[in-house]
Simulated scan of single mutants.
Amino acid sequence: MADVAARLPVEVAWIFLGIPEKDRPALTRWSLAAFCSDSAVERAVAHLEILDYFHTLADARRARPADDLVSVLSRIEIDGRLLPLDEVVLNCDNLLVGSTENVRLAMAGGVQALLDRASLWQRVRREPDRLMPTLVEEMLRWTSSATHLVRTARRDVELGGQRIGAGQRVVLWLPSANRDPIAFEAPEVFDVARSPNRHIALGAGPHYCLGVQLARLEIQAVVAELIRRVGRLQANGEPERLESIVVNGYRTLPIRLEAEEIL
């Protein structure tokens, strides 16, 4: 999870956010601890370190802007007033989570699905160009790494025979939606050639993930390199799942990668 799946999305996030190279190791460490540590105290402390870091960086970028997202956010004006620093920091935090955590979890969970299905791994290796686009979408559907969305009903409505009143809170569980037999044929099958694949792993409508194309590119880049270099995947220990209702996936996923001639 840290050695392979996290590396590319984390580095890309640091580039977009304009994180100085000297600060990246510490921020990477805090980011992984905030979401992967099995200690609630360590997770909380790491998250506070991240927020404190972005507060300091945003303050500095407001005084001396650079060519990065933190500078853009720190100098946004609404009704003639700069966006409060606390809101800049929370936006930076959300960008960090969205651009690293979900990609890492989807990528790793998809590779785990291929590990459990050796014949599919060989099939993808034989037809990488044809299957890569559908494989990436199936990884996103299968893992549904962002678990739920909460919304407030704006008007009275009946949905699936259930009355929902205006003002009521509604929770949509993405893993359930992405395994809906009405929407998907054989939803419990990991199908590398599934098409169409109208999953909502990255949201929908006005709240559709802003980084959807970047997420797809990052997953495709790493998986394509694994396909090129790795002949066989083997479990190398017992994986551990995260205990969270916010994100869905693995805390650890030890895999042995064996080189082999391309079939």
Rank of each mutant, 00 (worst) to 15 (best):
A108V: 13
S71H: 04
R75E: 05
N236C: 11
N197H: 02
H207L: 01
E127Y: 10
D191Q: 01
F54H: 00
P9D: 05
R169H: 11
D156H: 15
V12F: 06
H148Y: 10
R216D: 00
V246C: 04
G231N: 03
D3H: 14
N178V: 04
L57Y: 11
I262Y: 06
L226Y: 01
Y208W: 09
L135G: 12
A224I: 00
A66G: 10
H207V: 01
E137I: 03
W142L: 04
G237F: 08
D59V: 04
E77V: 03
L82E: 06
L257W: 14
V150R: 15
D3W: 10
F184N: 05
V72R: 11
L202M: 14
G167C: 11
V192L: 06
R163L: 04
R151Y: 03
R125W: 09
E127A: 11
L242H: 14
L69W: 00
L149Q: 13
R154P: 01
R126F: 14
D191G: 00
P187K: 00
I164E: 08
P254C: 11
H55V: 03
R125M: 07
A13R: 00
V222S: 01
S31K: 07
R24L: 04
V89L: 04
L263F: 08
A2W: 10
G110A: 11
V10I: 12
S244M: 12
A5V: 02
L105Q: 11
E49P: 11
F35N: 10
M107C: 13
E101P: 03
L174M: 01
V10A: 14
L120A: 06
R241D: 15
L73W: 05
L90C: 12
Q220G: 13
A215Q: 08
L263S: 08
D191P: 01
Q112V: 07
W121T: 11
L135M: 12
V88P: 11
P128F: 05
G165M: 12
A44T: 02
P206W: 00
V12N: 04
A63D: 09
L115F: 08
A44Q: 03
V41Y: 08
I164K: 14
A5I: 02
H148C: 13
V246D: 12
V212C: 13
V103W: 15
V12S: 06
A235I: 07
A153Y: 09
L263K: 07
N102L: 10
D52Y: 01
R179T: 07
N102I: 14
R155E: 15
L217S: 03
V103T: 13
H55A: 15
V171R: 09
E101H: 10
H55T: 06
L115T: 07
A259W: 04
E260T: 02
L95K: 05
S74H: 08
Q122E: 15
G110T: 06
E77M: 05
N197W: 02
V88F: 09
Q168M: 02
E49I: 15
D67L: 10
A33I: 05
N197C: 09
K22D: 14
V171A: 09
G231S: 02
R117P: 07
A183W: 03
L242C: 15
L174Q: 00
I245M: 12
L242R: 14
P9V: 02
F190I: 02
L27R: 02
G249F: 04
S74E: 04
I50F: 01
V89D: 04
D116E: 11
Q112E: 15
G98D: 07
S176V: 02
R229I: 00
D93L: 07
D38V: 06
I182H: 12
E185F: 00
D68F: 06
P9W: 03
V222P: 03
V136E: 00
